[in-house]
């Protein structure tokens, strides 16, 4: 895991700071949102499966997320299986997830703590 926030790579060899003028930890809501969307536009693939069926599996993902550097946004999205559209037959999405604050448009799960849109999803989804 990288610990040097200045060198944190946002994917294409360019640091977040070079591209956005701030690191993810310093970014405001809109900038963070743009960082996330840009990474997906540029082809970011995240780990959608397996969905954590049990709490032990769920906790393992949280443990992995806790180990990340505060600016390692890319790994955060990969591990959590972030996705910019609803998921599965049931069309699961942030809007119904209990961690999603609908007015703040924010994922309140402390290990993620990121802006989110109602139609997005991740595999830490819980209702």
């Amino acid at each position: 895991m990288s610990t040097d926030t200045q060198e944190e790579d946002q994917g294409g060899g360019v640091s977040f700071e070079d591209r956005y003028g701030v690191t993810p930890a310093e970014a405001d809501h809109d900038t963070l949102l743009r960082m996330i969307e840009d990474m997906f536009t540029e082809g970011l693939k995240t780990q959608l499966e397996p969905f954590p069926e049990t709490d032990r599996e769920f906790s393992k993902l949280l443990d992995d997320l806790r180990e990340l550097d505060v600016n390692d946004l890319r790994q955060k999205l990969i591990i959590s299986g972030w996705k910019l559209s609803p998921h599965g037959e049931d069309e699961m999405r942030c809007q119904e997830c209990m961690y999603f604050l609908v007015h703040k448009r924010w994922c309140d799960l402390p290990e993620l703590d990121l802006p989110a849109e109602p139609e997005w999803w991740c595999r830490l989804w819980r209702i």
Binding site: F51, R126, I127
Partner: peptide, 14 residues
């Protein structure tokens, strides 16, 4: 372990 202070879920549903 993991069952205290944690809502137990199956596929994301309590």
């Amino acid at each position: 372990p993991g069952t205290v202070f944690k809502t137990q879920t199956v596929m994301g549903v309590p």
